[in-house]
Design a protein around this nucleic acid. Sequence first.
RNA 1: GGGGGCGUAGCUCAAUUGGUUAGAGUCCCAGAUUGUCGAUCUGGUUGUUGCGGGUUCGAGUCCCGUCGCUCCCGCCA
Length: 596
Amino acid sequence: MHPFRSHTCGELRAGHAGRKSRLSGWVFRKRDHGSLLFIDLRDHYGITQVVVQPDRDFFETCRGLRPESVITVTGLVEPRSADTVNPSLPTGEVELLAEQLAVESAADPLPLYLAGDDPGPEDLRLKYRYLDLRREEMQRKIALRADVVASLRRRMTAHGFREFQTPILTCSSPEGARDYLVPSRVHPGKFYALPQAPQLFKQLLMIGGMDRYFQVAPCFRDEDARADRSPGEFYQLDIEMSFVTQEDVFAVVEDVIAGVFREFSDWTVDETPFRRIPYREAMVKYGTDKPDLRIPIEMADVTEMFRGSGFNAFRSVVEKSGAVRAIPVRGIADRPRSFFDRMVEFAVERGAGGLAYLVWSGGGVKGPLAKFLSEADRSGLAARCGVGDGDVIFFVADAPARAAAIGGDVRVRLARDLDLFEKKAFRFGWVVDFPMFEFDETLGRIAFSHNPFSMPQGGMAALESGDPLGVTAFQYDIVCNGVELSSGAIRNHSPEIMLKAFEIAGYSRGEVEERFGFMLSAFRHGAPPHGGIAPGIDRIVMLLAGETNIREVIAFPMNQRAQDLMMNAPSTVSERQLRELHLKLDLIRDSGREGM
RNA sequence: GGGGGCGUAGCUCAAUUGGUUAGAGUCCCAGAUUGUCGAUCUGGUUGUUGCGGGUUCGAGUCCCGUCGCUCCCGCCA
């Protein structure tokens, strides 16, 4: 017999009765009856009840075992009598009658209690992650992650893609997030950077003729965390394809993503092709470029209807080239005044000047705005927004970007308060036609709004049109339930168009040649038209696991301040290491916090 | 960098307008217990109320500062 186990703790059934079996696992719970002891023995696969009788020489040893000690038990599989069967356990028809027992590893008292529902405080869970991971829910989520990654690989391979590795030690990129830097020992004063994404490498693989690339790729960005954004590092399903249009990329990704979501969830998943939403339309209807399409509210632009209206507050906003956005909600006319007050308060908190509303009720129109509007205005708004008796329209008036953002927040808040989210559904959409450039208020000039390597729609002619802010790119996002899963683009493979695009964003030819000379050179030696995308794997697993916190689907996540509480990273290093790397510390703040 | 929330026993939480020696459950420890399955019963230990300062006759409670965790804004091509 194997020294540790003949079966797993989730395996034994009534059919095994009478067989000799050996199990290894953790002591999950103990029930000590003085002259009879029950141990729930747990491993990755399940729980089996072990019975220890008082005449065994290891009986006292067992009584002293603390939870989470690891033991190996050998004995007979016994069928349980009808009144002692445990129907809530898959192995509940049998138990293991212990004949031999070995303590593999005795456990100290635990900082976390694993046999209950409460996972405990997150910093303790992270510090003792190896304990936290033993909980059934964590076993399930981390296993789900592994299965999702395996499925993604299988599906990409089936589409004719190969997985290529790209460097982890590379060089800093000028645009984008802050880099993680790695000092060079051999080249004093020079640094490697960890890749924010394998962006340039995957394009170079296309230029290298590899045709279809994917990679489960680690990405490193030194930016602050959010609930859905892990600090430091995360994983993308990085994809790039040669000789493709935007639609070719969509077709592959839709098939892979829809397939994975159907494989790992019984929720409704959109049929492919997913809906396509132009960026400008998304900003008007949803106030965001990552709309939650489970919410049955679509905003409308009603700016023109207020241009000549009697409502001065809105008219003056419109005259200052602002926008008025209407948020129609059906069937809530009978909500109490406090509901509307709460929404107004919320909008003001988000920076709105106010939140107006009209209530269609009892054949009339009520609300603070009603007396300023003519009968024609009201019926015009009703027709525009498709509302009738019993419905309500909220209004936000502000500069267009602000009106969109606040309206979008109000839309989500309404859905939350009114429980309007479609249940058990993953709703996908492609947001397309992103603007190539935007006006950067802080820099006071035009900047790339997304990826500088995207192909502008209309090519060189569009860039030379003299209206850079009107140029859209072959740049797209895929969103699911309000989560941005990924950005992608058809790349700009023409050096001249690229130089022109960088020129508009304020980079001279010389700067671009210096920074991206290797890319320009590559483009000058035969570059296939190509494009790709990079769905976030952590976020996919998060959605499939029904989690809102990304740390729940990462085995060893860092906390919000980018620390690994278990390993104590980041940590100080020795003087010798610093010397070898030609580094001298210049700590402005007292470093007493370090070292812990 | 900024804002919100939280911080009381290993863990989850109480503690009247500021009022006696800061409690309960759980964990842990000891004892009892032959059919439990979140076993049960009896007893017991566990505290710089995050830290520092202030107000007060008196502070877990009020004020100031600070630290930690978390959520959000900035940031995230």
